[in-house]
Every structure is written in C-alpha cells, then in structure tokens.
C-alpha cells in the first residue's frame, strides 16, 4: 500500500479555521490527509498536544493561526510565537525532526493559502515517509499504527 501521510492541523478558531472554511465553501480542492483540530486561539496550542499527536500516529503537523497583530484576543499569537521559537529549537536540540511541524499564519481570507499549505505539507511529509523514527521508540505505538492502516 502506498504511504498516505497523516497530518494533524492545530488551528485557531478566528483566522485559520475560518480560512479553511473559506477554502471549503470556495470548492478549492486540496489534500484530504489533514485532520483539523480547532482551538480558541494559537495561545491555547500547548506543545504537549503536538507531542500527543505524534504519539498517536501523526506523521506531520500543521500549526496555524492569525497573522501577528490580527489576534482576536490581541496577543495570543505573539505569546504562541515565542513559545514556538523555543520549542522548535528544543526539539531540534533533541534531534527531533522539526521539518515535520509546519508553522504558518493563515487569515480568514486566505482560503487559497490554506489549501496550498496543506498540499505542500502533505507532499513534504509524503517524501519524508512515515515517522518511524519516532514510532519505533515504542513498539505498541507502531503496532497501533499498523492496525490503523489495515482497518482503513
């Protein structure tokens, strides 16, 4: 079976989720590999959620919210940005493949950008292949993932 990447997108309610909605209502075609999880704000996207997504079988992750200065809560994305900067650097220091997490700003008007972002990320992860480097750390996760593939 060909490898189909599992992408999980963590997006904020006010900008990127609306942007994805716009892509949908505009009938823009984009990769179906993405599962979107909606958050009140990027400020709420805790790093542990990303870790849990990988633990549960994600091959790639998209994190996206309002552009700087556009946050619905004024500063949530600024706080998030600081945390992403250090989190990404920490992961890299631990040798974690940070290319598997794509960070982006997508506004409610950028349906096309969203579709492009998902397509691009899916292609990138498809090239990289499944995230076995992480999954093989725990045999039971690998087993769970294989079961998933079979049941699908």
């Amino acid at each position: 079976m060909d490898f189909e990447p599992k992408i999980v997108a963590f997006v904020c309610n006010w900008c990127t989720y609306a942007g994805a909605d716009l892509a949908g209502t505009s009938r823009t075609k984009y990769a179906t590999n993405v599962s979107i999880i909606r958050f009140p704000c990027t400020g709420r996207i805790d790093f542990m959620l990303l870790m849990k997504a990988f633990e549960n079988g994600a091959d790639g992750i998209i994190v996206s919210g309002c552009h700087p200065n556009d946050c619905h809560y004024t500063s949530g994305n600024f706080h998030a940005r600081r945390r992403w900067i250090v989190f990404r650097s920490l992961l890299d220091f631990m040798g974690f493949d940070t290319d598997r997490i794509t960070f982006s700003w997508v506004s409610a008007a950028e349906g096309t950008k969203w579709a492009g972002l998902v397509d691009e990320t899916t292609e990138k992860i498809r090239e990289k292949g499944p995230f076995t480097e992480f999954k093989k750390l725990d045999y039971s996760i690998l087993e769970k993932i294989e079961n998933d593939v079979v049941t699908e």
Partner: peptide
C-alpha cells in the same frame, strides 16, 4: 518570565 510576555517585533524564520 520571557515566555509569558512578548514583543511584537520578535523574530523568527520558520513561520510561513
């Protein structure tokens, strides 16, 4: 605490 504050001008290269 650096991570509960921010500056609008914080720089990064990876957010597309």
């Amino acid at each position: 605490y650096a991570l509960n504050s921010f500056k609008p001008g914080d720089k990064e290269q990876f957010i597309k």
